[in-house]
């Protein structure tokens, strides 16, 4: 099957790669761009480990073909920390709140939470749980993931107190 040249802008940097049409965005990021921070769990849209931002929107990179992203801007977990490696507030909150155990789901959760925190308006407990229910953590460390994102939202001035579901 012949390959088609495409241009992706990933974390602000241009990548020119050649892909088969069936190559998913997740595989292209990992195997063609060498950015293995984006993880693949289920490869059919259930687990959310491959979540990236495509033109600012959170998407499942396993349900998107790389060829569709030709000319578009993608953000991955590699783009979160500062160039000197210092963690951003969301990453730091995961670190400080034990928001990861094995770490496999972490890139997906980080990009999902990044997207949520960039949406207009505040986040409350109901919204936090609704959005984060999208992704699976195989260590089942959900409480600390919620705590981490809640902490980051507070630090970023995006948190609104509301009723906490039981």
């Amino acid at each position: 099957m012949s390959k088609t040249p495409i241009r992706l802008t990933v974390n602000g940097l241009p990548h020119e790669v050649a892909v088969e049409p069936r190559r998913t965005l997740a595989d292209a990021l990992r195997d063609d761009c060498g950015l293995t921070g984006t993880h693949l769990g289920c490869e059919h849209g259930v687990c959310g480990a491959c979540t990236v931002l495509l033109d600012g929107e959170a998407v499942r990179a396993c349900l998107h073909f790389a060829i569709q992203a030709d000319g578009h801007a993608i953000r991955t977990v590699e783009g979160l920390a500062a160039p000197d490696g210092s963690l951003n507030p969301l990453q730091r909150a995961f670190w400080e709140n034990h928001g990861l155990q094995c770490g496999f789901c972490t890139p997906g959760f980080l990009m999902l939470a990044t997207w949520m925190l960039e949406q207009p308006g505040p986040v409350d407990e109901a919204r936090l749980r609704h959005v984060l229910s999208s992704n699976l953590c195989r260590c089942t460390g959900y409480q600390n993931i919620l705590t981490a994102v809640r902490t980051a939202a507070q630090e970023l001035g995006k948190w609104r107190e509301g009723a906490t579901p039981a």
Partner: peptide, 12 residues
Amino acid sequence: AEHIAHAPIRTR
């Protein structure tokens, strides 16, 4: 709408 799959599915 909020019952349709999850937020990152609804963006696409």
